[in-house]
Amino acid sequence: MIPLHYYLIVAAMLFCIGLAGALIRRSAIMVLVGIELMLNAANLNFIAFWRYSPNPDGSQGVMFAIFSIAIAAAEAAVGLALIIALYRHYRSTDVAEEGKKE
């Protein structure tokens, strides 16, 4: 049987890859993708803790993950709309360039 640690370590690695990407990428879309990866790592933790909880027949963990996925979808839609509006204004999605123009 796989111990709970392994899932938590995978989730931690995924979170840190997403964090590094959100910090170093220059394209605003890729920053948003990094945030999505971090959200996914949190979802993996929800499901892992639910599976290894003393009472896995309860549905709380699954419900939490489903609602979290729905929130992430709403966030992605609004975030990408913002990036498109930003592109129309600056003609670029480069985060570093947009800072210099101010």
Partner: peptide, 28 residues
């Protein structure tokens, strides 16, 4: 982790919607 429903939701929402949305944003 035997969370079948969440797995299918993940495929539908992330692979089906969010990834396609990101490709749209890249092209737009």
């Amino acid at each position: 982790l035997s969370a079948e429903f969440v797995a299918f939701v993940q495929l539908l929402v992330y692979v089906g919607a969010v990834a396609i949305l990101i490709v749209f944003a890249l092209l737009l």
